[in-house]
Design a protein around this nucleic acid. Sequence first.
DNA 1: CGTTAGCTTGAATACCTTCAAAGTAGGTGG
DNA 2: CCACCTACTTTGAAGGTATTCAAGCTAACG
Lengths: 268, 268
Amino acid sequence: MLKVPSFTQPAVSSDPSEGAWSRTSKLWSSLKELCSLVGIAVEIDLEEVAFQHMQFKAGQRIFTIGQPFDMLYVVYSGFLKTVLIDEQGHEQVLAFPMKGDVLGIDGIHGKRYATEVVALTTCEVLILPFKTLTALGKSDYALEAAFHSVMCRELVREQNMVATLSALQAEARIARFLVQLSERFSALGYSASRFTLRMTRSDIGSYLGLTLETVSRTLSAMDAAGLIAVDIRTLVIKDLEALRTLRRLRPQRSGNEHASLRAQAASS
Amino acid sequence: MLKVPSFTQPAVSSDPSEGAWSRTSKLWSSLKELCSLVGIAVEIDLEEVAFQHMQFKAGQRIFTIGQPFDMLYVVYSGFLKTVLIDEQGHEQVLAFPMKGDVLGIDGIHGKRYATEVVALTTCEVLILPFKTLTALGKSDYALEAAFHSVMCRELVREQNMVATLSALQAEARIARFLVQLSERFSALGYSASRFTLRMTRSDIGSYLGLTLETVSRTLSAMDAAGLIAVDIRTLVIKDLEALRTLRRLRPQRSGNEHASLRAQAASS
DNA sequence: CGTTAGCTTGAATACCTTCAAAGTAGGTGG
DNA sequence: CCACCTACTTTGAAGGTATTCAAGCTAACG
């Protein structure tokens, strides 16, 4: 129903989440390619280092919770979800990684993966043996710094997620979610206003701390309000600015401002 | 109504968050001391490296949002809160750091602090110039690895926070919060069943995504139910096991199990 | 001793969830 | 190729839980 013309794309496929599908495509990437993929500026290019690619079909897991940690992964193409499984076996969606995102960072502490990552579409990922990375980091300061930076980017994202969950209500959470997706697609060179939701309503609900029914209802309401047009997995953003400003925050009576005021007075 | 006897504490002060109060205490810490503080096992002990201490009074900020990043901090004593301020100036509490916790990690990416940390009591923190750390990491593999590990610990914590916020309701969130506090105090050698809440109800509410009224009501209800005894800031846990198991999760109808099943079938 | 910040509690409301049912799409096998 | 199955989605109605607004309270501080 919604065909994206392929001539706008730098990649093989016409859709961001269908990268390498029926072909073997590229099997190895250089360090330089890796760096440009994750968005860090390092200009060293050791020819002897190469990272292997690996393919996954929708539904397959890149790694599972509890599995011994030894690799990081970088998404080359496709769309995935990161989930945490609690003691009762309930699935909690933590993120929807896509091209350029790093997977498995949570395994560094504790030597086992704390989450698991499931492919939502056919995916291609780069495999980064952690030992190789640390060895490279030792020999190159800039690379080590970039590595730290990427790890922290994840932390900042997660913090913003907590803020979103804590302070916003359903409509605003979903609005923010859509804006976030739009911006990420846009950054990868795809349309910011038309894209496919590769995850289920249940996944979105889990991610945003809502039920799938609330997600469905809210999307319908936004459609009715003319902010978006949604047809199952196909989404068109019709008023991005309205979605951006739709953050009906709780009044959140600001508690103890006195403390800060006292502090400023004390320190000056 | 509820008096906490001070003779149950092993430390100088009767309260974990009042560590160094009216005295200058220690001014420098060795690398060895730093490592034992953050809980990493590194046995090198370079005499020439030392980290300065710094004192803060309640209400003072260790650093603020947007301030150029150049230092990490480790809590030596006291109790703090990490907050994020959104565009509208609303404060969102992200964490309550205490002894051994590292502050400022979110500043590594972006070269500016993404959060700010406010002292809730008198505090003493170690100052770790980031450049010193990275330099040390270059010369010592184990230290570098430990550094990564600590950064990732934060990420895992934040992920668990997201899960808590998404999946639990008010009572369970507060129960988990209390258990978490209890365990942290316990790990530091203080009583797991009697402690002081240094933060306001508003802070707790912000942290847990609830209003201060809901926090207050829920604490009262738990008191009435005999799980805890609460008198303003003084808290006694009377039934830790009940608090632990009080996780009335949402049914969270588990969505697409088929995907995983399909994947397992495909990969086998 | 008055003021202020923080805490508690009550009552009404709004929002989201829960339960339920029906419709839709994609894949599989006959 | 069609029918069927399953998973996913939508929508309605009822109910519950947390918020909002409001008032009174306590404790700390100047």
